[in-house]
Simulated assay, not measured.
Amino acid sequence: MSMFSAMLNCLGLDMGSSQVRIYQRDKVLLEEASTAVVDNISGQVLGFGTEALIIYHKEPENYTLEWPVRNGVIADYDMTKSMLRFFLNKSLRRSVSRPSLMVAIPAEISSVTRHALVDALIHAGAQGVYLIPSPAAAAIGAGRDLQVPSSTLSLVIGRDVSDVGIYGCGGILAQEGISFGGHDIDRAICRHIQDRYSMMIGLEQAEKLKSEILSMTGTGSDRAFTVRGRRHADGVEVVVELSVAEMSSVMQRIMEPVLLLIRRVMSRATPEMADDFLKNGMLLSGGGALLDGLRDWLSESLHMPVTIPADPASVIAKGCFAACMMDKDHSLLIENGDKYFGGA
């Protein structure tokens, strides 16, 4: 029996820059924002996750939201440790034993970053920590068999990081990541509107446009929509009309780094792997997978099928838990965190 299978408190953990998801036995135990609310005067941390958002929005002038995980790495160790302890306790309210964690990590993070992550998780209450690349976890969560000779191409687009990996025969064939994600898309939308129309909009408004209106494949559409913001010169409130076609071209330019990343990783593939990609396509997951038209744009640009799992945002945590239960099958993908703990 797998060493994980005997553990009642094995958890799959996807600790993203915007969301923390904890998965166990066919259900999401926890899905909350990976944020903390801090009192502006005392500097005291008052809450984490959903609780932090509620406190902040009651009196935003008195509090600040802090995001202790940025670009896939820990930016504030103590805050991250406290946040993880809160989330683990909330997930396992009735348990008296310490959980073992299978944690999704970006494709490229340093040993120093891995040490900080493992150290924070152990001190937050984990019994053991095991690491798996996010694209591999997403593929496992989506039901892909990574043990077969056929190669799997997996792309994950998160808030701050995008990762691509090629997996097969139970191991890593190639993988790479870049510091680019949904938050960068929001900032780029703000920059375009300011540069083109001399109007400023907030990141929340840009995110709403991205998720509700903008499309990667709206070129040729005559639809238009209005955006309200502040004129850059004097701060006066103004309204501009934007076309879907114009913003479609903008979105394609913004997403160019992801396309280049995929092509770089694919350039390392053998002819046999390339044939697998044409037959099996690429798996697209993470919160960024929900961007309208992205699947079709990638498919057309890469000349291969692109599939999105039923729940692209939660599939990584699901895959982490599945890897827990089949650790011997994925021994070449899983890294034991013990070597990063205790100063190693």
Rank of each mutant, 00 (worst) to 15 (best):
E241L: 11
R191L: 10
P149M: 02
T270G: 06
R231H: 14
I334M: 00
A75Q: 06
L290H: 15
V236P: 05
M1F: 10
V148E: 14
R253Y: 11
S110H: 04
A344D: 09
C10Q: 12
A139D: 06
L121K: 05
A107T: 01
S134D: 11
F48Q: 00
E32C: 00
S162V: 06
S134A: 14
P133A: 10
M304R: 13
S179M: 13
E237L: 08
I172C: 13
A323H: 05
L294V: 09
I105V: 10
R228Y: 01
S5F: 08
F321D: 06
E108R: 02
E32Q: 09
H192L: 00
P312K: 05
V250E: 00
D78F: 10
D296N: 14
C10D: 12
V258T: 11
L11K: 04
P271Q: 03
G165R: 02
L155C: 08
Y77A: 10
S162D: 04
D329A: 11
E237Q: 11
D292F: 15
H192M: 03
G319E: 03
P106H: 00
D78S: 15
S110R: 00
I262N: 11
I308Y: 07
V118N: 02
A344I: 06
S134K: 15
L65F: 01
S18T: 11
A224Q: 15
I193D: 00
S267I: 05
K58F: 12
I185F: 12
P60E: 04
G181Q: 03
M251P: 08
G170V: 01
A120L: 03
I185P: 06
M199P: 08
